[in-house]
C-alpha cells in the first residue's frame, strides 16, 4: 500500500497490463540542488595542479572535491598559499565510517576563504590500517579536529604533534563512531557503573541510643588518660527508652 510518501516510479508498468509501446523519457526540470556554482579557486587549482584532484561534485551550492591521500598535503598547501585560492580557515575536519567500502574511512576538510568569499570541501579516503598525512603544519587548528577523528573513529594522522584521545577517557576501548560499535556500548563498560554493590551495603546501627552508649564507652575507656577532659564529663543524649529515638530538640 503506497503512502503519500512512497510514490510509484514514473515508468513502472501497471501489473497485469500491457507494457507501454514507447516509454517516453520523462522530461524533468533540472534539480536546482545540483546546479553548478562557479568557483575561481577550483579553476585555478585544476589549472595549476592538473591530475591531482578529481571532478568536482556540486550539491546545494557546495563543491566537493575528491583528492587522493598521496596528494592531500600538496593540494592543501596550494589552497592555503595561492592568492587566488587563499583558504586561510580550516572550518572543520571530520571522518565517516563506511565499513562496506574498500577504504573504510572518508575524511572531509571544510575550507573557507575570507578574502575571496569561497568555500570548498575536500574529500579523501583512508583504509583502516593506513594513516593519513596530518594537515597541522598548514592549519594548526586541525590539531583538535584530528584528535577527535582519531578518538571517535580511529583514523591515524601521520605527523600530528600529539595524537591522543580528546572526548573519550584515555583508557577507553574502541572508537564509538564506527558503524560496528554498538549504540549502547560494550557490556564491559556497563559493569564499570554497576550500582548493585552500593545498594546492598549494610549499615551499622546508628540509633541515638546505640550512639550514646558507644560514646559513653569511649569516655570510660580513656578516663584518666592524658588529654581526656576530666572536668567536663560526657553527657549522653536524652533517649526515649521505648523507641530508642532522640526526644525533644
Amino acid at each position: 500500500m503506497p503512502t503519500d510518501d512512497d510514490k510509484p516510479e514514473a515508468g513502472t508498468p501497471p501489473p497485469g497490463g500491457a507494457p507501454p509501446p514507447a516509454p517516453k523519457p520523462p522530461v524533468k526540470p533540472p534539480d536546482p540542488l545540483l546546479a553548478v556554482v562557479p568557483c575561481p579557486a577550483l579553476d585555478r587549482l585544476r589549472e595549476m595542479l592538473p591530475g591531482r584532484v578529481g571532478d568536482p561534485h556540486f550539491f546545494a551550492g557546495e563543491i566537493t572535491l575528491k583528492v587522493a591521500p598521496d596528494h592531500l598535503l600538496e593540494v592543501c598547501r596550494f589552497l592555503r598559499q595561492d592568492p587566488a585560492c587563499g583558504f586561510e580557515l580550516l572550518v572543520d575536519l571530520t571522518g565517516t565510517d563506511f565499513p562496506d567500502e574498500e577504504k573504510r574511512f572518508r575524511v572531509v576538510y571544510h575550507l573557507a576563504s575570507l578574502r575571496n568569499g569561497q568555500r570548498l570541501r575536500l574529500r579523501t579516503e583512508v583504509g583502516e590500517g593506513d594513516s593519513l598525512a596530518s594537515v597541522t603544519p598548514i592549519w594548526p587548528g586541525a590539531n583538535w579536529f584530528e584528535r577527535e577523528a582519531f578518538d571517535l573513529l580511529g583514523i591515524h594522522f601521520a605527523g600530528h604533534p600529539r595524537l591522543v584521545r580528546i572526548l573519550m577517557p584515555d583508557d577507553w576501548v574502541g572508537h564509538p563512531l564506527r558503524k560496528d560499535y554498538p549504540l549502547p556500548g560494550y557490556p564491559e563498560h556497563h559493569l564499570r557503573y554497576r550500582t548493585a554493590d552500593v545498594t546492598r551495603r549494610s549499615y551499622v546501627d546508628i540509633s541515638w541510643k546505640a550512639a550514646g552508649e558507644r560514646a559513653a564507652a569511649i569516655v570510660k575507656k580513656y578516663k584518666g588518660q592524658v588529654g581526656a577532659p576530666e572536668s567536663a564529663p560526657h553527657v549522653p543524649m536524652p533517649v526515649d527508652e521505648t523507641s530508642g529515638q532522640k526526644t525533644g530538640d
Binding site: 540542488l33 572550518v91 570541501r121
Partner: peptide, 25 residues
C-alpha cells in the same frame, strides 16, 4: 511526512552563533 533526501549527498550549513561559526555537516 518523512524526509527523503537524495542518496549519498552531503551538506554543510553554518550560522553565526554567539560564539562563532556553528555548523552542521
Amino acid at each position: 511526512r518523512k524526509m527523503r533526501p537524495r542518496k549519498d549527498e552531503e551538506v554543510y550549513f553554518a550560522i553565526e552563533g554567539p560564539r562563532g561559526e556553528q555548523g552542521v555537516y
